[in-house]
Design a protein around this nucleic acid. Structure first.
Length: 286
DNA sequence: AACCAGGGAAGAT
DNA sequence: ATCTTCCATGGT
């Protein structure tokens, strides 16, 4: 067991990150102690890592604790919590835009990534076209039925396990037939090597889009969400997302949801940090 | 009861 | 290429 202390540049609001993770019943965290235990899979081995918030929003400090390979784990944790991103720069960028107020309300809030890009992809498929409450229930059933638990932390099932599931098994959990096919199909692609998540990390958003769009069950929305919450890419704006549309409608007091053309106008000046505007728009209607 | 949900595939223009 | 319809299921 080792421990490591990490200081990063502020602002960074760890409590908002924890609150977000608290929405998912699978997560193992303590809001009072400001700790979360997260599952990490590294080369087929699973490790539990505990992350504790010690500092303040302006001077964030964290303690990482685990038994796994240290440098590898530190790298993954840093990426997952987006400690390499300068929220100060992002915040400054939006001070001269039409969504300045959003950035005051969500000051210091980073992208909250899933603990593994593949988890994110599974989750995106499961969440398609479902209200958030039921979406969480469905994901929870999926993980608790076919995944595994270690030190009180739930791990998603490995692709090898999912690839061998039948549509009927997932339908029992109340997946629709299509959803079941999609999830199993993606797992099979990972197992046979035609979808390599680690390799994706090296590619541009566009390259990833063109690769993933060919997969059955994966459309533009799913890819945008994967890039945002699986890989933490900074410049995504899911135009077709109902939540984003409703958020714009509310923020600008519109009579009805904006058209796609109108959405294009609102986002002017937000690049290259569209993802942060998207994130805060979603949060603004929760 | 009807309509919606942080969509996507398949079929029809 | 773009538009429409259908798919399934819980929430409101």
């Amino acid at each position: 067991m080792w421990k490591e202390i990490i200081h990063i540049e502020g602002p960074y609001d760890f409590d908002r990150v924890l609150e977000r993770h608290a929405l998912d019943p699978l997560n193992q965290l303590d809001l009072g102690k400001r700790t979360i235990k997260i599952p990490l899979c590294i080369k087929k081995e699973s490790f539990v890592v505990e992350v504790a918030g010690l500092g303040t929003v302006e001077q964030p400090v964290f303690q990482i604790e685990s038994r796994g390979p240290k440098t590898f784990i530190l790298e993954r944790v840093k990426e997952t919590f987006q400690w390499n991103v300068s929220l100060q720069e992002v915040n400054r960028h939006f001070q001269q835009t039409n969504v300045k107020k959003l950035f005051t309300n969500h000051y210091g809030t980073p992208l909250v990534l899933d603990f593994d890009p593949l988890y994110c992809l599974f989750k995106c498929i499961i969440h398609q076209q479902l209200n958030l409450t039921f979406a969480h229930t469905l994901t929870e059933r999926f993980v608790k039925t076919y995944g595994f638990e270690k030190e009180g932390v739930w791990f998603y099932p490995c692709p090898e396990v999912v690839a061998k599931l039948t549509v009927e098994q997932l339908r029992e959990l109340q997946f629709s037939g299509k959803k079941a096919e999609y999830v199993i199909g993606i797992a099979k692609l990972v197992v046979d090597g035609s979808l390599n998540i680690e390799e994706l990390k090296q590619k541009t958003d566009e390259q990833i889009y063109h690769q993933l769009i060919k997969i059955r069950g994966v459309g533009a929305w799913t890819i945008q969400n994967f890039l945002l919450f699986g890989l933490g890419r900074p410049n995504l704006f899911p135009l077709a997302d109902v939540g984003i549309q409703n958020a714009i409608k509310k923020l600008f007091n519109l009579e009805k949801k904006p058209t796609l053309e109108e959405m294009e106008l609102y986002k002017q000046g937000w690049e290259p940090y569209l993802s942060y505007a998207s994130l805060y728009l979603w949060r603004s209607i929760e």
